[in-house]
Amino acid sequence: MLNLLRKDILVQKHTIWFALGYSIFVFFAFSNKTFAPFVYIMGAVAISYVLILSAVQSELKNNSDLVLLSLPVKRQEVVAAKYLAILVFILLSLITMGIIGLIFMQSPLPFPTRLINWQDAAITLVSVILMTSIYLPAYYKLGGKWLQVINIVLFMIIFFAPSTIVGYLNAHQQDQGVQWLVQTVVQNPYLASWLGIICVAGLMLISFLISLNIYRKQDL
């Protein structure tokens, strides 16, 4: 399992340079007041997602699954390692963003205004797991030919989901469930974050089981 994880890191040495470059760029690109509070999240989500996509695409390029499954590994290990890689990439992207942010804070440059915090980490974790929990089963089921389509669909979800959710909450302000949710988030952001994390952990587990079921039956 650790060898598979190590492989997912080694296959994308160029992407790691991109991640480092992007983590610097993002502070400049989103230095205005509107975006600055979200700079850590925007940076970490983008870097994690690119690293995951890059790991998946490196297998697709040469149909390297044929090599992986000819090695002494089980199919469930290949899938489990991919999900474990998601967590590792999130952690790496948060550490990178945190360190770059700290360096910028020590510099005479006027940004950022704060250090990375646990809320940045929680929102990054929830967002990336949400995306990849949809992405990976779709990738295992549909394969490389549909990868671009999957990416576009996910991008649309990321783009439109927040406004749709806010619109839904506004339209259902009188609902007891909605009121409880809004109150909880406002009054107890820690609890809200933990609820979010527990929900995506459940989603990730379901996603893993679906991917595993697909991959176990797959002919290469």
Binding site: L10, K13, H14, N62, V67
Partner: peptide, 21 residues
């Protein structure tokens, strides 16, 4: 056909494969 990692060198591919054995 080759199914190893084309974008990596021979030695980098070796570093990926070797630990499995």
């Amino acid at each position: 056909e080759n199914h190893f990692y084309e974008q990596l060198s021979i030695d980098e591919n070796r570093r990926i494969i070797a630990p499995f054995y």
